[in-house]
Computed example of a mutant assay.
Amino acid sequence: MSDQVRPEEAARALTEIGQRQEQVIRMAGTPNWFWWAIAFLMVAMSAVAETGQGPVAVIGTAVLVAGVLTTAGLVAFRAVRTPQPRTSLPVPRFVVAALVFAAVLVGVSLAATFTLKASGVSYPGTIGVSVTAVVLVVGGPMQTRYLQRLMLANRPGSRR
């Protein structure tokens, strides 16, 4: 018996490790349903704020806050239950990506809402947030894929 590892065995093992790392990174991403849920809740909250009065607004707000907390809680619970990538990630790039995405969402929302309001359109907030919701549903998964690419590129032995 030899303790030597043959090159083809080592190559297979490294391939398996790479596949497992990629699997963990893919599992750690934000699921697409999250973006849809938050987009729906944003539009619903805006509609309640613009149309609801008194108890309707209070109950609607409470239900929507519960929806956001539940949605975020489900994603957090999922994250706790799945393996996590190592922590030596390119944090500045992650932070910049999150800040840019948030700035785009706020900018789109404000621009659309103020333009609609200046044009005299009814329910400008709800329509403006609806435009933002579309950006969120399209851009959220794009941001998730970008962050996953950053994590994949940051693995030991990967080409950067």
Rank of each mutant, 00 (worst) to 15 (best):
Thr15Cys: 10
Arg86Met: 08
Leu99Thr: 09
Thr30Gln: 11
Arg81His: 02
Thr82Trp: 08
Ile38Cys: 12
Ala11Tyr: 05
Val48Gln: 13
Leu110Gly: 10
Pro85Trp: 09
Ala79Gly: 11
Gly125Cys: 00
Ala28Cys: 00
Ala133Met: 07
Val58Tyr: 03
Gly139Trp: 07
Gln21Trp: 08
Val104Trp: 02
Met45Tyr: 14
Val63Met: 08
Val95Lys: 13
Gln148Trp: 00
Thr70Pro: 01
Ala102Lys: 02
Gln23Tyr: 10
Ala47Gln: 13
Thr82His: 08
Arg12Tyr: 08
Met1Pro: 11
Glu8Arg: 14
Pro92Phe: 09
Phe101Glu: 04
Val121Cys: 06
Leu116Pro: 01
Lys117Gln: 15
Leu41Gln: 03
Asn154Thr: 09
Gly60Cys: 09
Val58Gln: 11
Ser88Gly: 14
Gln53Val: 09
Phe114Lys: 06
Ala103Trp: 03
Ala133Gly: 11
Thr15Ile: 12
Ala79Lys: 11
Phe114Glu: 10
Ala62Gln: 05
Ala118Thr: 05
Ser158Gly: 12
Ala44Ser: 12
Ala28Tyr: 05
Arg12Cys: 05
Ala111Ser: 13
Val129Glu: 03
Leu110Cys: 00
Val63Gly: 01
Pro124Tyr: 01
Leu14Ile: 14
Ala133Lys: 07
Arg81Asn: 12
Thr30Val: 13
Ala62Ser: 04
Thr132Ser: 15
Thr144Tyr: 00
Ala98Thr: 09
Phe34Asn: 01
Ile127Phe: 11
Ala47Asp: 10
Glu22Ser: 09
Leu69Glu: 09
Ala49Pro: 01
Gly140Lys: 06
Leu116Asp: 02
Arg149Pro: 00
Leu74Phe: 06
Gln143Leu: 10
Met142Asn: 06
Gly18Asp: 13
Arg81Pro: 00
Leu41Trp: 07
Val108Phe: 03
Leu14Tyr: 12
Pro124Glu: 02
Thr61Asn: 12
Met27Trp: 10
Ser122His: 13
Thr61Phe: 13
Leu136Ile: 12
Gly60Lys: 04
Ala97Ile: 01
Tyr146Thr: 10
Gln143Arg: 11
Pro141Trp: 14
Val43Asp: 10
Gln23Asn: 11
Glu8Leu: 09
Pro92Trp: 11
Ala98Cys: 10
Leu99Phe: 14
Pro141Tyr: 11
Gln21Val: 04
Ile25Ser: 03
Val131Trp: 08
Ser130Gly: 15
Gly54Trp: 01
Phe101Met: 03
Phe40Asn: 06
Ile25Met: 00
Thr70Asp: 11
Val63Glu: 05
Ala10Phe: 08
Pro7Ile: 13
Thr115Ile: 05
Val80Ile: 13
Ala10Met: 12
Thr144Ser: 13
Gly107Cys: 14
Gln84Asn: 13
Val138Arg: 04
Thr30Arg: 03
Asn32Val: 14
Ala11Phe: 15
Thr87Asp: 12
Val138Gln: 08
Gly128Asp: 04
Pro124Met: 07
Thr126Asn: 06
Ile59Ser: 01
Ala79Leu: 09
Glu8Asp: 13
Val56Ala: 14
Val131Cys: 08
Ala66Pro: 02
Val121Trp: 11
Phe101Pro: 03
Gly125Pro: 00
Tyr123Gln: 06
Val121Gln: 05
Val121Tyr: 08
Val104Arg: 05
Arg159Gly: 10
Thr126Arg: 09
Val24Tyr: 04
Thr115Glu: 03
Pro141Cys: 12
Val137Asp: 14
Val58Pro: 02
Gln23Glu: 15
Leu150Ser: 01
Val104Cys: 10
Val5Glu: 13
Val129Gly: 00
Leu99Trp: 15
Pro156Ile: 09
Thr51Ser: 05
Pro90Phe: 03
Pro92Glu: 12
Leu116Phe: 07
